[in-house]
């Protein structure tokens, strides 16, 4: 394997792991449900995407076919993350989950 591919794979792996961890820290640390929603939808999606990309590069550097299923999983996660976040936000507004103090504006009553 060429040294360039090794550097690229290692960097992408560490980047992905760090972002997955940051998303989870956000989920554990932020004060209310609506702010917690931000960590998983963005940081975790990007983190898993980077890990997938490193897997694609790794297996093509090993001389196998280009990994289409990895790309398919990444595209699927990118498409579904906003939908599930939206559904959960709607459910939370329906139940009336409390917002943290200092939040501007209010969720709707529908």
């Amino acid at each position: 394997m060429s040294p360039f591919a090794e550097y690229a794979i290692s960097a992408l792996l560490l980047f992905g792991g760090a972002f997955t961890l940051i998303g989870a820290i956000g989920l554990a640390r932020l004060p209310d449900f609506y702010t917690r929603l931000h960590g998983p939808t963005k940081a975790t999606t990007v983190g898993v995407g980077a890990i997938m990309l490193s897997s694609v590069i790794y297996f093509s550097a090993m001389g196998e076919d280009i990994g289409i299923s990895e790309i398919l999983i990444t595209v699927f996660l990118l498409m579904t993350a906003p939908v599930s976040a939206n559904m959960l936000a709607k459910a939370a507004m329906h139940i009336g989950v409390k917002t943290v103090e200092g939040t501007d504006g209010k969720p709707w009553e529908q």
């Binding site: 609506y34 929603l37 931000h38 939808t41 963005k42 999606t45 990118l78 498409m79 993350a81 906003p82 939908v83 976040a85 939206n86 936000a89 709607k90 507004m93 969720p107 709707w108 529908q110």
Partner: peptide, 16 residues
């Protein structure tokens, strides 16, 4: 709405 959810610091919650 999906784009908003994936981009800087915003999540779309509901459509009227």
């Amino acid at each position: 709405a999906s784009t908003i959810s994936l981009t800087p610091g915003t999540v779309s919650a509901d459509v009227s």
